[in-house]
Design a protein around this nucleic acid. Sequence first.
DNA 1: AAGAGAAACAACCGCCGGGGT
DNA 2: AACCCCGGCGGTTGTTTCTCT
Length: 357
Amino acid sequence: MGRSPSRDEIGLKKGPWTPEEDQKLTDYIHKNGHGSWRALPKLAGLNRCGKSCRLRWSNYLRPDIKRGKFSDDEEQLIISLHSVLGNKWSQIATHLPGRTDNEIKNYWNTHLKKKLLQMGIDPVTHRPRTDLNLLSNLPNLLAAANIFNLMNPWDNVSRLQVDAQAQVAKVQLLNNLLQVISNGGSSSLQPPNMELLNHLRSVPNRDNNYLINQYLEPNSQLLNTLGYSLNPSSQTPPPYNFSNSKYPNVPNENENVAVEEADNCYRFEQGSSSRMVSNNYLNDNNMNVQDYLSSPEYIPALVSASPERNMNNIIKPEINTTTNSSTSTTFETTAWGELNMDDEENILSDYWTELLE
DNA sequence: AAGAGAAACAACCGCCGGGGT
DNA sequence: AACCCCGGCGGTTGTTTCTCT
């Protein structure tokens, strides 16, 4: 049972504000400040409750409110902050000047949540999802990459971006699958496709390194007990080298992780990826920053938080394919790319799906 | 062009905590 | 300690706008 409206609140107007009401409220606050919100409506000549006035002012009329589309940086920041603070919209809003908690909350619920889900990231935990939805999404992403490559053979920049998305999607899927493995596999399962796993070793980049370090190495014993073995010739991949990168938009990828303290948080940055963790978390787990960086908890962001940005920023390049093509590792020339769509689907439907089940 | 459904946004609701009495 | 008031917060709903068929 909720609180019944007080005597004063009966008969007050609700719903959307009219321009006249906005004007009255704005004029009054400019002249007198808001003072007691409860007393304000009468003084300002408004047939509204104080709470409604307060919300209208703080969420819409306040002069320092920034309106309009959220920038990519703001988007990234919201995601990072949310991974640390959860649904603490007011706290998140303090880091975004001019944005209200309500606006951020709405933006999260209508845009960012979906975006993360599409990227295979659980918007609550900010970790890769382990459900099967990704399995159904992956073929579409891969198909998109293939179709794009076929349709736009001249567009190396775009192809790189699409390739990168497909590659990242695959890595994420594998990430999920490996999590399933590491969470306790059943010996009745068929062994995983070790060619795929070993492929990670043959294509050195940050994401693959991460998967290897996080899952393959720590779980090699587990895999052995399950009757699987890693390719004995595999070696720890060489350090990530940006000059071979598939992620042309990520600068300084081989830079050391930068750490900065902000409020009670640390921000871990690697190229355009960032992740935040609270001091409390480190304290609770008796870790310092170095411990955290080398711990299984540290997961570099696998993808840009703004896939649309990459897609929207596609620019048809000058007819000069020499520079881009020489450094690209396009989809069809990778070991992954050697799998055609039928192969991918077979793996997904026949083997990995069964593995997950 | 029109209708349906989805998406986006503004506003409301109920609860909670802090401060005052 | 108990109560009340106020402001703030997060979840949810209602309305408007957009997109698709």
